[in-house]
């Protein structure tokens, strides 16, 4: 039986883990290498590492930090931020990433999704979708939530899934950092229309929210940052809550 994954996320800025509220006003939550070690020890199902200002700073991801973070992980590691070319993807894989998250560059150059999937396999290409509600629909943003594109999030999700994305990381910008729970309508709208796994992200403030993301939102994995970083909950607490709600989790 396939298990629902619990994925802590390290949002990294200038080499430090930070967690912002609605993507701005960032607080410092420490050293990514130390955090990775903690999550490996706690038995997280995967780890996600996002260099949140790589695109807006127009620079490449900090490979050395990815490298040192990966050294602490015997679990799958997804790395995103400033990935623009197949060479960038290859360099991240060599630094120890297992999957690569692409957001901004997929919009600027959608062929990177297809070419990346052909070269490295679909399972390696995670397309990150940062979506904001706009009346009855959602539009996507790039550059770490700094640029609006006007592209419809649901249509985009279907497009990149068809082009070979192996997984979608769907973040609600309205909910991110608020602790109010996932945007379940957004999740439902996407999970019901794509055939690839979806990771729910943005807004987790309680363990119940994790359960909702799967049961109501249809997500295959749940991602959270603050509730784990600041020690409010451990991975095993999340597992317990999800198991009690009837979901299959590991251990």
């Amino acid at each position: 039986m396939l298990k629902t994954r619990i994925i802590p996320c390290l949002d990294v800025k200038e080499g430090r883990v930070v967690k912002g509220i609605n993507f701005v006003d960032l607080k410092d939550a420490g050293d990514p290498v130390e955090q990775a070690k903690v999550y490996d020890f706690q038995g997280a199902d995967e780890l996600c590492f996002l260099d949140i200002t790589a695109s807006s700073d127009e620079r490449n991801i900090l490979l050395d930090i990815v490298n040192r973070t990966a050294d602490q992980c015997f679990m799958p590691l997804t790395v995103g931020g400033g990935v623009r070319s197949l060479t960038d993807i290859r360099n991240l894989l060599l630094a120890g990433a297992d999957k690569v998250g692409i957001n901004t560059s997929a919009i600027n150059n959608p062929s990177i999704v297809e070419e990346g999937a052909n070269k490295f396999g679909s399972q390696c290409i995670v397309v990150a979708i940062d979506a904001k509600k706009n009346k009855d629909s959602w539009t996507i943003y790039t550059h770490g939530g700094r640029k609006e594109t006007g592209i419809d999030a649901i249509e985009w999700a279907q497009f990149v899934a068809e082009k070979g994305a192996g997984e979608l990381l769907v973040t609600s910008m309205d909910r991110d950092g608020t602790g109010k729970g996932f945007d379940l309508d957004l999740l439902k709208a996407i999970t019901s229309k794509v055939s690839v796994p979806v990771i729910a992200s943005g807004g987790v403030g309680s363990l119940e929210h994790l359960v909702q993301g799967v049961k109501e939102g249809g997500a295959n994995a749940v991602l959270a940052a603050s509730i784990f970083h600041f020690g409010k909950f451990k991975i095993k607490d999340a597992r317990k809550a999800m198991t009690e709600a009837g979901l299959n989790t590991r251990l």
């Binding site: 396939l2 629902t4 994954r5 199902d45 997984e167 055939s195 796994p197």
Partner: peptide, 11 residues
């Protein structure tokens, strides 16, 4: 339609 591919995760 519920079944997602890739088969991704712990099994």
């Amino acid at each position: 339609p519920e079944m997602k591919v890739p088969h991704m995760g712990w099994n």
